[in-house]
Amino acid sequence: MNKICFFDTKPYDKIFFEELKEKYQIEIEYFEPKLGPKTAFMAKGYEAVVAFVNDAIDQETIDTLYQNGTKLIAMRCAGYNNVDFKAAYDKVHVVRVPAYSPYAVAEHAMALLLTLNRKIHKAYVRTRDFNFSLNGLTGFDLHGKTMGVIGTGKIGRIFIDICKGFGLNVIAYDPYPIPDAGISYVTLEELCKQSDIISLHCPLTKDTFHLIDQKTISLMKKGVYIINTSRGALVNSEDLMEALKSEKVGGACLDVYEEETELFYEDMSYSIIHDDVLARIISMPNVIVTSHQAFLTKEALHNIADTTLSNCREFFDDLPLTNEICYQCSKGDNCHRKKNNRCF
């Protein structure tokens, strides 16, 4: 039976990987620390390691893994902007989970909006103290408002369907619009100008880094709501904070944050938070923050475990790596995948 090691283990991860490991004939060693330069040595003797989007998979980490015999990094997530692919190329294969439950993320985005708009989180705290006052809990009807959706991949399209169910007028921006999808595409500038609410559903790339910043915010309506359940660095956090202070942005629903790596998924309730921007954003009454939990449903966790272990099984059985990625994958023939079904 093949063995793999698993970094940054959380109880909810372990449940589903334990359920499925026999199916794929794989033994798993679970480690609590995140994968990074100081912990990569723990993988010595393991051909495959399972990592997450908040791990630090830089050149030093990859070199240590490679020197100690690791040949596969299996990301148990869709995102991979934390991987140094140039350092990994020709040394360690990288696979990911391209889709697990787009419904989970889309539904969470709407849940955040409904919670913040209707002040449900504040009402919950009040009524537990037997305070039944309605003062300060006024929201607005979603029906008839304009929702701007940035990114129309699987999650974006499901979120659009949810919005239509609420009677929202939906417009969208995507540099690669889908023909005949029934989606009203506009430019990014027009989306910013027309939208009452803007929701981000796009990957983090060099082109989308700080897509929401002082410039794009200046185009938006006063009081606009911004939802981000994708990647933290899509939004310039300092610019968002200033826009919230000036009330240019009326509310922010954030499941991600650009400097979340050392904070999210951990209990920091007994620690001093040195990130002043995050501390100020969380303290604002018109902001709701969740700790990158949009994916967290039973269905999604099952699918993540199933695909991750399937990726590992393909590697051990010397099969084509269905979900492999490398820094040359988008460069056509420069990637060897077309020749031998692996990136190198």
Rank of each mutant, 00 (worst) to 15 (best):
239 D>A: 15
226 I>T: 10
245 K>F: 08
234 L>W: 13
216 T>L: 02
244 L>K: 04
226 I>P: 07
217 I>A: 10
235 V>K: 13
229 T>Y: 02
220 M>K: 14
241 M>N: 14
239 D>H: 14
217 I>F: 14
241 M>T: 09
241 M>F: 13
244 L>C: 07
243 A>R: 04
221 K>Q: 10
228 N>F: 07
233 A>W: 03
245 K>Q: 12
227 I>D: 10
221 K>M: 11
229 T>P: 09
228 N>G: 11
241 M>C: 11
237 S>G: 02
231 R>L: 00
217 I>P: 09
216 T>V: 05
236 N>Q: 06
228 N>W: 06
238 E>R: 15
238 E>C: 15
227 I>V: 14
242 E>A: 15
224 V>A: 05
220 M>Q: 13
219 L>Q: 13
229 T>A: 02
235 V>M: 11
228 N>A: 10
230 S>Q: 11
231 R>W: 02
231 R>E: 01
228 N>E: 12
232 G>L: 02
234 L>E: 03
227 I>S: 12
239 D>R: 07
235 V>W: 05
243 A>Y: 00
245 K>P: 00
237 S>I: 04
223 G>V: 12
246 S>N: 08
217 I>G: 14
230 S>V: 10
216 T>I: 03
239 D>Y: 13
232 G>V: 11
243 A>P: 03
241 M>Q: 15
245 K>S: 07
236 N>I: 01
232 G>I: 04
227 I>P: 10
222 K>I: 13
225 Y>F: 14
222 K>L: 04
222 K>T: 15
228 N>S: 11
246 S>G: 12
218 S>L: 05
244 L>A: 03
227 I>H: 05
238 E>Q: 13
232 G>R: 10
234 L>V: 09
242 E>W: 13
218 S>N: 04
246 S>H: 00
245 K>T: 12
221 K>H: 07
218 S>E: 00
245 K>N: 02
220 M>P: 09
243 A>D: 01
226 I>G: 07
220 M>F: 10
233 A>H: 03
223 G>I: 09
229 T>M: 05
230 S>W: 12
244 L>N: 01
219 L>V: 06
237 S>N: 04
223 G>S: 11
229 T>D: 07
234 L>I: 14
243 A>L: 00
232 G>Q: 05
226 I>L: 10
230 S>I: 08
223 G>N: 01
232 G>F: 03
239 D>C: 11
228 N>Y: 06
240 L>K: 02
246 S>A: 11
236 N>H: 13
220 M>N: 12
217 I>Q: 08
222 K>H: 11
236 N>P: 06
224 V>I: 10
224 V>Q: 00
243 A>H: 02
236 N>C: 13
